[in-house]
Design a protein around this nucleic acid. Structure first.
Lengths: 204, 204
DNA sequence: TCTAACATGTAAAAAGTTACATGATTCA
DNA sequence: TGAATCATGTAACTTTTTACATGTTAGA
């Protein structure tokens, strides 16, 4: 999915400046979506304007001078055609999960627990936000926007539950069994010790 | 998070070829992580070898000629140092959510439902996989790998539940109320109709 | 014999970030 | 007066994908 369509989507809500588009994602993406940098936004706005999807309303009157962008007829059509295209499966880059699934038995579990606690806090902050935002009295949340936020809410609650379960399992040495028919856990530790050499092998 | 560290992480499990690393992500990423292309993998393997993090075991004997890569002592250390760094918050690009939250009232809800149904199928396939994989009798799943898979399972189940609730709400016109203190829904539709012109405005 | 899977790689393009440069306005 | 926020933009860099090129081997 392209930044271009994401920009059109934001502009469909209301005319915005480049600065505005960035801040829209800063707090409201709510773990549903990713932000973009000015280095992406401004060149894309320029490009979209040149191609006739959006136009600028230069406002030098009300205090600051800024460029508000609004969709053209062509922009609306492009946006709506994009909406109708079946969305591709989400791309997720979750470093915590990558780290946890490759964590090995010569590593200190306390460090992993601290990673989980950090994540729990971040997730809780976002959860708090998505629970308050649709009820704050001034933000615009459409009916379908509300449904999307409901997804974020359910997902974040599930995540917190999983983190709590995982910390509990790590602390009480109550981990699931796994599946290791070929003794891979042992092989891994041996490969590592052989590579590192001697008994300098314990990383705690 | 870098492709380099992800490659080191995969190699920590067992020595692998470039081809192998890609297939590792093809099926096992399980919605937890993203795949990478050969155009990323092979140059990175070369670079990691040059920098002394991995070394190649060229195997021309057993049938096919291939380059198995294994971690060096330096590679193990780099991998483990990376494991200890607090992971950054996941990056998610969920096109379905972006589309749903910017869907507007002149769009056909049936199309949105078809998007949801497609996602439900994709999610169900992955869920089935993560439920069977740790019990298939031959794959290696470490204890912490099992915990990671448990996360995927919970997350995917939650997602399916949300999809079902959402489809139900869309079909029975039972959507949540949203929050629109400034009449933005109306404003949006007016801006759109003005831009598109006349009453060609209905996109169904 | 043919297809699918195995296997390695490069070049060009696309996508996106970081760092920098600049300046106005608001508010404590 | 100084900091935070609003505001726009570019250049260099990094990262990653796409498309191409090439060839082997196992099995139906």
């Amino acid at each position: 999915m392209s930044i271009e369509h994401t920009i059109l989507a934001v502009l469909s809500f209301w005319p915005s400046t480049g600065y505005n588009i960035k801040s829209e994602f800063e707090h409201k993406a709510a773990g549903l979506y990713w932000g973009m940098s000015y280095g992406s936004i401004y060149p894309k706005l320029k490009k979209l304007e040149e191609e006739g999807f959006i136009y600028a309303i230069e406002q030098e009157d009300e205090g600051r001078k800024k460029k508000m962008y609004e969709l053209t007829a062509k922009g609306w059509k492009e946006f709506e055609n994009w909406l109708k295209i079946p969305p591709s499966f989400p791309i997720i880059k979750d470093e915590l999960l990558m780290k946890m699934s490759t964590w090995h038995e010569d590593m200190d579990n306390e460090v992993l627990i601290s990673h989980l606690l950090k994540r729990k806090e971040e997730t809780s902050d976002i959860l708090k936000f998505v629970q308050e935002w649709p009820r704050n009295g001034y933000s615009y949340v459409s009916k379908l926007g509300c449904l999307s936020i409901r997804y974020a809410e359910m997902k974040l609650e599930t995540e917190i539950k999983w983190i709590e379960e995982s910390i509990e399992a790590l602390q009480n040495n109550n981990l699931p069994d796994g599946q290791d028919p070929h003794g891979n856990t042992e092989k891994l530790l041996n490969r590592r010790r052989r590579a590192i050499g001697g008994d300098k092998g314990n990383c705690q």
